[in-house]
């Protein structure tokens, strides 16, 4: 149904435009000064005017985010493999994974910054702590919920542990892993930004969060908004990219991706 499909994009865009229009109107009608609330047009202008400052900062934040996602993926999957191989290991280590997950990263970040000299490494660790858990728990769930009948069949036909893992449990866990990855992508960005906030006050970072802090001290509110827009944009891009990856890998055989075709 093309009508429904166009509504799917049209309606959110209309709501967005109406909100921005209303915002701009309120700012102009009340003559609100930019250091209290800049209008969307001014924010867009700032985004263009400050591009030279913001773009390099975006790259710094992006680099941390991407690296953290990579490390979280490797670490999360490796731990999940370990957990899936031995129930004992899972029982022993899982509580600590939960502890890391539930302790707010803002609270841990200052400590990590004290103990880890290299700021980049500290930021990476923070982002990793936030992001690895969904990958770990989803992948573990996927690895241990392999179809019993297929496991029996693999055993009957003489498949060893490695072949069972490579050709059955791993592909079967793929949809779970990709679901975890989608969550982790957003969390990596959050972790990177939060850690930068914690580190930024010491003047040691130059990512987008640092720009927000810096602009805040100077009451350059339009630039704060401009940096915020960039962070949100990056988050959306990461989500879209991982969703596309998910679709690309699963669309041929998995129910979740086939339903959308």
């Amino acid at each position: 149904m093309p009508a429904a499909a166009s509504f799917r994009y049209l309606l959110p865009v209309l709501v967005g435009l109406a909100t921005l229009g209303g915002w701009e109107a309120v700012v102009r009608a009340n003559e609100i000064p930019p250091y209290i609330l800049p209008g969307p047009i001014l924010i867009a202008e700032t985004l263009v005017a400050d591009w030279g400052t913001l773009w390099p900062s975006l790259l710094v934040t992006l680099e941390i985010t991407a690296l953290a996602l990579l490390v979280a993926t490797v670490g999360g999957v490796a731990l999940a493999l370990l957990f899936a191989q031995s129930r004992l290991v899972e029982l022993t280590l899982f509580p600590y994974a939960v502890v890391l997950q539930v302790t707010p990263i803002v609270a841990i970040a200052p400590l990590i910054l004290i103990y880890v000299d290299d700021t980049r490494a500290a930021l990476l660790i923070c982002a990793w702590i936030v992001a690895f858990f969904p990958i770990l728990s989803n992948t573990t769930l996927g690895l241990v919920s392999t179809d019993r009948n297929l496991l029996d069949l693999f055993r009957l036909y003489g498949a060893g542990r490695f072949r069972t893992l490579a050709w059955l449990r791993f592909p079967a866990a793929l949809p779970y892993f990709l679901g975890g990855l989608r969550i982790a992508g957003g969390l990596c960005l959050i972790g990177a930004v939060v850690a930068e906030f914690a580190a930024g006050t010491a003047g040691s970072g130059s990512g987008l969060a640092y720009r927000i802090l810096e602009a805040g001290y100077r009451l350059n509110v339009p630039r704060m908004y401009a940096a915020l827009v960039m962070i949100a944009g990056v988050g959306i891009l990461i989500f879209l990219a991982l969703t596309a990856l998910n679709h690309l890998i699963l669309r041929r055989w998995h129910e979740s991706a086939r339903g959308a075709e």
Binding site: D147, N149, L150, L153, L156, W167, P171, W253
Partner: peptide, 12 residues
Amino acid sequence: AWMGQDAGLLPW
């Protein structure tokens, strides 16, 4: 050799 009620095919 084995054949079950569910075809037990690898979906991928």
